[in-house]
Amino acid sequence: MSLSLQGCALRGAPSFEIFGAYFPFWLLSGLLGLVGALIAQRIFVTTGWARTVPYLLFVCVAIGLTVAVLFWLSATGLLL
């Protein structure tokens, strides 16, 4: 029974302060993931890889998700 509660902790949600207001950390991770996807799309278009990469939308979303998750894990200290 106690094995199902291993993920629960009393630490609370990680948050950061911007101009005196606290924002959840997942919001910043999502925004950085969106920026990562947009940068990847721009790189694909300017280099010409957009014509050769199939399903470019899904590739850019996967890159953005990877950026967001890696930022989340590294910033919360769970990566290493």
Rank of each mutant, 00 (worst) to 15 (best):
V35C: 10
T47C: 07
P24M: 03
L34D: 01
T47Q: 11
G20M: 01
F58C: 01
M1K: 03
P54Q: 06
E17P: 04
A9T: 15
G30N: 11
G12H: 06
S4F: 13
V35M: 11
L57R: 14
F16L: 15
L57G: 14
V69W: 07
R42T: 09
A62W: 01
I43A: 11
R11H: 11
I43C: 09
C60Y: 00
L73A: 12
L31A: 09
T66A: 12
G48E: 04
A68M: 14
F44P: 01
G64S: 14
Q6I: 15
V61P: 09
G20A: 01
V61L: 14
V35W: 10
Q41K: 08
G12Q: 02
C60T: 14
L56R: 14
F19H: 05
S74G: 09
F23R: 02
L28P: 06
T76Y: 05
G64Q: 02
A50Q: 02
W26I: 08
F23I: 01
T66G: 15
L27R: 09
I18K: 03
I43V: 14
T76G: 05
T66H: 10
L65F: 11
L65W: 09
C8I: 15
W26F: 12
A75W: 07
G12Y: 01
I18S: 01
G12S: 04
Y22S: 06
F25D: 01
F19A: 13
I39H: 01
A9D: 07
C8P: 00
L5W: 11
L28V: 12
P24F: 03
Y55L: 15
P54K: 05
G36V: 00
A50C: 06
P14S: 00
V53G: 02
L56F: 00
L56T: 08
F19S: 10
I39V: 15
L3A: 08
Q41I: 05
S74E: 10
A37L: 00
T47R: 06
V61T: 11
A40E: 00
G64M: 11
V67H: 01
F23M: 06
F23P: 02
T66F: 09
P54I: 00
F44V: 07
C60I: 11
L32P: 03
S15H: 00
Q6M: 14
G77Q: 00
A40H: 10
L34N: 07
T76A: 08
S2V: 07
A9E: 10
Y22F: 08
L5P: 05
L3G: 09
